[in-house]
């Protein structure tokens, strides 16, 4: 296929192309681009061949279902118009989540739900009954005491327990 097949190419361009090729000075500069990978992956789980991956209700509903099928894990007023302390609240919430997951090690079977009302922080969640009730009472008091000391506001833990991890499973994929 010769260049003459491209009728729409201006003569000047063709000449330039011929000149470059002839002299062997084909330009190497240029912007290498790849198509954007428009892949959305967060909050989505792979389907297994034997459908053995257990999902909770929270996991089974993708982030786009928030406010439709599931609600938020954090409730506060920072995102309202002229809301205050947004960055502080986010960092505190991250800290609370890490602290709760570490203190109640391998016990939480749901997400840690943080609800703020005025200066009160209420932390809710579902916990397995794998440790003695007495230890749970201790952990509740321990978390409330330490978190309220660090965050400088009253903290309340509202824990629900389930006998087995399987009781919060919504479906298998």
């Amino acid at each position: 296929m010769s260049l003459s097949h491209f009728k729409h190419i201006p003569k000047a361009w063709t000449n330039q192309w011929l000149l470059r090729n002839a002299v062997g000075l084909q330009s190497t500069c240029g912007l290498h681009t790849t198509p954007a990978a428009c892949k959305v992956q967060s909050g989505r789980y792979k389907v297994t061949t034997d459908r053995s991956r257990p999902l909770t209700y929270e996991m089974a509903n993708q982030p786009c279902q928030i406010a439709h099928r599931k609600s938020w894990n954090t409730w506060n007023t920072t995102s309202l118009l002229d809301g205050q302390r947004e960055p502080e609240t986010v960092v505190e919430d991250i800290f609370i989540r890490k602290f709760m997951n570490g203190t109640w090690h391998d016990l939480f079977v749901s997400e840690v739900i943080i609800k703020r009302q005025h200066n009160m922080i209420r932390i809710a969640g579902i916990v397995q009954q794998r440790i003695a009730a007495r230890k749970m009472y201790f952990l509740i008091g321990y978390c409330e005491e330490l978190l309220s000391y660090w965050l400088k506001c009253p903290v309340k833990l509202e824990i629900q327990t389930v006998t087995d991890k399987k009781s919060v499973i919504y479906k298998y994929i």
Partner: peptide
């Protein structure tokens, strides 16, 4: 509360985090 999975009833109150989230 909750969107029912295929062929199931909506999730009941036991171990239902959605019910704990909403005021």
């Amino acid at each position: 509360q909750g969107y029912p999975a295929k062929g199931q009833a909506p999730p009941d109150k036991w171990g239902n985090a959605e019910l704990m989230k909403i005021p």
